[in-house]
């Protein structure tokens, strides 16, 4: 029962204990950093052909990831093993800012990425060097078919991410995030690696053309202009009802006050 990309952040299991773990975590980070600095390097892969990127990646990994994911990415009580999750999972998690985890919770939130492109590539190279896993997908929007993508999206994605990728709630504090800030590559990576509780859609479930199509549709539906005016968050009838309750009715009541006022 080894974890794969599927078990990338077992945040759900931790959420109750975490108030008390916060202190421990800080201590671990300090310990990890110290270890990373002091420990002899590269005992796992000291072959001559180890590339520069992998080596740099391992350094980065050991500074900022190893405290939770283990010194050799083998996983700990806190976080899953990263052996075999592939470059795609690393790129998705780090470039979307979900990792390193800012604070424990039901799931990792998207935030500003902490590392630049080169650093993320190095970390991805290191994790990919541990065991084969999904590579960072090559997204080709031109290859995508908007109609096919729309149908695939509605069957497989909309049930959690909503019809326009606005996101939605899941059980016990988890949620399917809004897709607007995600880049096409990140969307494809999420499909391929299934971050956290998201199901995995591997190459034999959806081929590259299908993934390109879904990504193209997501790009369209989150970025296209709305012909009918303000989109109201694209959450369906709830914000529409709120607009009537907060704008429509009060505006008209104010008008009745004006009309009813005696000169």
């Amino acid at each position: 029962m080894t974890s794969t990309a599927a078990g990338f952040a077992a945040a759900g299991r931790r959420r109750r204990k975490l108030a008390s773990y916060a202190v421990l975590l800080t201590a671990l980070v300090v310990l990890g950093v110290t270890y990373a600095v002091l420990a002899p390097r590269g005992h796992a892969a000291s072959t001559a052909e180890e590339s520069f990127a992998v080596q740099k990646g391992r350094e980065l990994f050991q500074t900022s990831c190893a405290t939770c994911h283990g010194i050799n990415a083998q996983g700990t009580q806190e976080a899953p093993s990263l052996i075999g999750v592939g470059a795609a999972a690393v790129d998705f998690q780090v470039s979307s800012g979900r990792m390193p985890l800012a604070r424990p919770g039901p799931q990792a939130d998207r935030k500003e990425a902490k590392y630049d492109r080169a650093q993320i590539d190095q970390m991805a190279a290191y994790v990919a060097s541990l065991a084969p896993g999904p590579q960072i997908p090559q997204v080709d929007l031109a290859d995508g078919d908007l109609q096919l993508g729309g149908n695939l999206f509605r069957t497989n994605c909309a049930s959690c991410h909503n019809f326009a990728g606005s996101g939605g709630a899941l059980t016990y504090g988890k949620y399917a995030p809004r897709l607007t800030p995600a880049t096409p590559v990140q969307v494809a990576e999420a499909i391929r690696t299934g971050p956290e509780n998201m199901p995995v859609f591997g190459p034999s479930t959806f081929d590259d053309h299908q993934v390109n199509s879904i990504v193209k549709y997501v790009d369209y539906v989150t970025r296209s202009k709305n012909p009918g005016g303000l989109a109201l968050g694209k959450f369906g009838p709830v914000p529409e009802g709120l607009v009537i309750a907060v704008v429509g009715i009060p505006a008209l009541l104010a008008m009745t006050l004006w009309i009813g006022a005696r000169a």
Binding site: R154, A158, S159, P237, V238, E240
Partner: peptide, 15 residues
Amino acid sequence: PSQVSAGAQPDWYIG
């Protein structure tokens, strides 16, 4: 019938 969107809501008066 095999598809659904998260946040499937009716208009406010059926809410």
